[in-house]
């Protein structure tokens, strides 16, 4: 086996770009990581806002909701435009800050000051509803406190309002911390990757799979040039040739997946538990995928067209998993996911 490995190393030494191909996703990870993060920001849930009150408090609420990061606010002039956007699916939902918002809030009233518009397909707008609700409660509680204190003492409304508001910074004095827990280990918090990280990992997997398949060209070239026949005569059998080439094929795939995977984990400071889980699971899924791919290649008669078919399967696996369409459970890219 080492003879074949040294053969390929000898060949690759004369073509340094092959080594570069192995390290390419890792290099991309380091170069493009800031871009990944920014893109993730742009994928925040789009929400339409109509500010009919145009007051200081209404602006404060919208600014703070936008700063929360999970949503991207799209300003609309009228209620009708916002409703159309929701119906078209251009935004996940719309929030109408009703006229008289500031006056009601300053009285500590929170009923019917914001109208929430959504359609039957809206799913991710709950984040926005929670953010609006939290900011509403913050203003209303500050105002309620200020009204009472102002009636009982000589302190001004603004003074008490500001005093009360400081208990919300940097985080509310009291808050309920909601964390997801695993049913198997209820005492431990279940860490998860962000959705953009999962997509990038699936891209890494596609790259690694394609690169490994590309290596199969070497086997077809050996077959077509008569080198395999020569090996058959010299070694009396081709078993060790195929075993060695399977090992190299799987090694190329695994290394070109595991390297960028851990590069990404390193840059995003992923917890070690999560890193270990994704590494172990990834290696198992990749190994299984490469065994199936190799068997298909052999079953197809080690022909050049088989390489194209396998590449098509790899790309289909990625596309069908990402878009969640068509035999999703059959694709290795789906097997790759852990409780996402």
């Amino acid at each position: 086996m080492l003879t074949y490995l040294s053969l390929h190393l000898n060949k690759w030494r004369k073509r340094p770009f092959v080594i570069l191909l192995l390290a390419f996703p890792l290099l991309c990870t380091f170069l493009l990581y800031p871009f990944f993060e920014n893109t993730a920001g742009e994928t925040a849930v789009p929400i339409a806002v109509v500010d009919e009150d145009q007051s200081d408090d209404s602006r404060t609420v919208t600014d703070r909701v936008e700063d929360s990061g999970r949503v991207r606010l799209v300003s609309q002039a009228t209620r009708a435009e916002a409703e159309t956007d929701v119906q078209k699916g251009a935004v996940e939902a719309a929030f109408i800050i009703e006229k008289g918002f500031q006056a009601s809030i300053r009285q500590g009233e929170v009923n019917e000051v914001i109208t929430w518009i959504r359609n039957e397909n809206s799913a991710l707008d709950v984040f926005a509803k929670e953010a609006f609700g939290a900011e509403l409660m913050r203003l209303a509680l500050n105002a309620k406190a200020a009204v009472i204190v102002e009636q009982e003492t000589e302190t001004s409304f603004e003074e008490v309002f500001q005093y009360s508001d400081q208990f919300w910074e940097p985080e509310p004095l009291f808050q309920v911390s909601v964390t997801e827990r695993s049913p198997q280990q209820p005492e431990r918090e279940e860490p998860q990757l962000q959705s953009w990280q999962v997509t990038v990992l699936q891209l890494f997997f596609l790259y690694a799979w394609l690169l490994a398949i590309f290596f199969l060209y070497e086997v077809t070239k050996d077959e077509n040039s008569g080198r395999l026949a020569r090996i058959k005569l010299i070694q009396k059998t081709t078993a060790s040739y195929f075993f060695a080439h399977f090992v190299i094929f799987a090694f190329i795939g695994l290394i070109s997946y595991i390297l960028p995977l851990n590069g990404l984990f390193f840059l995003s400071e992923t917890p070690q538990d999560l890193m270990a889980a994704w590494n172990i699971h990834g290696i198992i899924v990749a190994a299984l995928t490469f065994i199936v791919t190799w068997c298909l290649f052999m079953a197809f008669g080690k022909k050049r067209w088989a390489v194209y078919i396998l590449m098509l399967i790899a790309v289909s696996s990625f596309i069908f998993t990402i878009t969640q369409t068509g035999f999703t459970d059959l694709w290795p890219h789906q097997w790759l996911l852990i409780n996402q």
Binding site: L7, K11, K14, S225, R227, A229, R230, L233, K236
Partner: peptide
């Protein structure tokens, strides 16, 4: 006796069955 046959035979194909990079 296929192994014996293969030990006894040296075959030079019409194609250049070599690794060009080496």
């Amino acid at each position: 006796v296929v192994k014996r046959v293969r030990s006894a035979i040296g075959y030079v194909p019409q194609d250049i069955a070599l690794y060009e990079e080496l």
